[in-house]
Simulated assay, not measured.
Amino acid sequence: MPERFFADIYRDTEHLTWAPTEQVRERGRRRTRQTRIAATLAGVVAVVVVATGAVALAGGQDGAPTPVLPATGSPTPTPTPSATSAPPPPPTTSTTPAVPPSSPSTTSGSPSKGPTSTTIPTEALLRAADLPTGYRPAGNDLDGDWSFNFAASMACQDTPNLSAKERAERGAVFQKLDVSPVIERVRRYSLDGAKATIVWARTVTECEPGNERKSLSIVDSGFAGDGSLLIRFNAEGLISYTLFVRQDDLVAEIWLGSVTNRTEVRRLAQRAADRLCAGTDAC
């Protein structure tokens, strides 16, 4: 190439100010991005035009769909649904069945006023101070033959069965020198079961005698709590008494041993009824 050409180029560019290399590179990258965006927009417009023509040919009417633009940082307006659009799907429902609100349970009989717990608190049992002078607490061991069932098995040929099922039982033993112990058994039933227990105890006294020298008889009733019975057991001349006291769904069965004074028995029955109130809301 002639030297004259290079001399002219040098003369024309001698006083030019050249941009820094990094600035030149940034301009090139910017130009490349603009070229790509332009090409993308051109492709989108072409697709929209073709889709519009297809809709117009298929539907026989002028279609004017809103063109779909590439996602940008600005919020996209909600498109207006057309008359031919499919209805929106129904809202998704939970597969968990709804739990109906709880309602008070009903029974065929009168509702029990007692607590729902089947336990028997110690406060529902007698104290040594409730008994005649000289008795002291001796634990809660209920083993042995000091019970109404044992007396009934000796006096009756066939002891009637108690159909009521107890839900809990708790006992207390009181001892005094040279006399039979006083033993209390407190049982919790359903309300109907507690009432049936008093009826059962009365029925047992009417059983067919199994031994003419042993017998059961009612000597007092209705003097304490929601129901009460004082039953005399004669075992060949040896006399003892069993006291039943009901308070709502609780029934106290007290083997009185040698406690035979009627005034003392009634006072003890009232103390037992008062104690049972610690185990029920009925009083």
Rank of each mutant, 00 (worst) to 15 (best):
T205I: 02
S105T: 13
V179F: 14
A252H: 10
Q23S: 13
G114V: 01
V68C: 06
V179D: 03
L230E: 03
R27L: 04
S190H: 13
D178T: 07
E208F: 11
R246D: 04
I231P: 00
L162F: 08
P70D: 00
E22D: 13
G53K: 00
P209T: 02
N161T: 12
P79I: 00
T78S: 07
P87F: 08
T66P: 02
L238C: 03
G279L: 10
A56I: 02
S258K: 09
P20Q: 06
P87R: 06
T96A: 06
T197L: 06
V251M: 03
T122Q: 13
M1Q: 05
G237S: 01
T92G: 13
T17R: 15
A151D: 15
V24G: 14
S112L: 07
L191P: 12
D226L: 09
L216S: 01
G109C: 11
R30H: 11
P90Q: 05
T32Q: 00
A58W: 03
P70A: 11
A124W: 10
S82K: 14
A273H: 06
R29D: 07
V173L: 14
D281M: 10
K214C: 05
I231C: 00
L250I: 12
V44W: 14
N149Y: 10
P111C: 01
L41S: 01
L268S: 02
P87Y: 09
Y189A: 01
P88C: 00
G193I: 10
A38V: 12
G144T: 00
E123R: 09
A64W: 13
T66W: 05
S102P: 08
P67C: 06
V219H: 08
E123P: 01
A124Y: 05
G109H: 09
A201G: 15
P100W: 06
T32F: 05
P160M: 12
S105Y: 14
E184I: 11
T76I: 11
V186I: 04
E206S: 13
V173A: 09
N234G: 00
S147T: 13
G227Y: 04
V173T: 14
S112V: 05
R271N: 15
V24D: 05
F233Y: 07
P70W: 04
C277G: 15
I218F: 01
E14T: 03
Y241E: 05
A269V: 10
T263I: 06
P89N: 07
D248G: 05
G222D: 04
P89F: 10
L268D: 09
L69W: 07
G193K: 14
F174D: 12
T21W: 13
P89I: 01
A278N: 15
A172M: 02
T205M: 01
D130R: 03
I120V: 15
P137N: 04
A64F: 03
K195S: 07
V245D: 04
L41C: 05
T242L: 02
D226E: 03
L256V: 11
W255C: 03
R188P: 04
R4N: 09
E123L: 01
E253A: 08
L276H: 14
P20C: 10
Q61H: 06
S108V: 14
T203S: 10
S108I: 12
R30L: 15
I37S: 07
R202T: 08
R36I: 00
T17P: 06
T107K: 15
A19E: 08
T118Q: 11
T106I: 11
C283S: 13
M154R: 05
A172I: 06
S215H: 04
P137Y: 03
V173I: 14
L243H: 04
L16V: 12
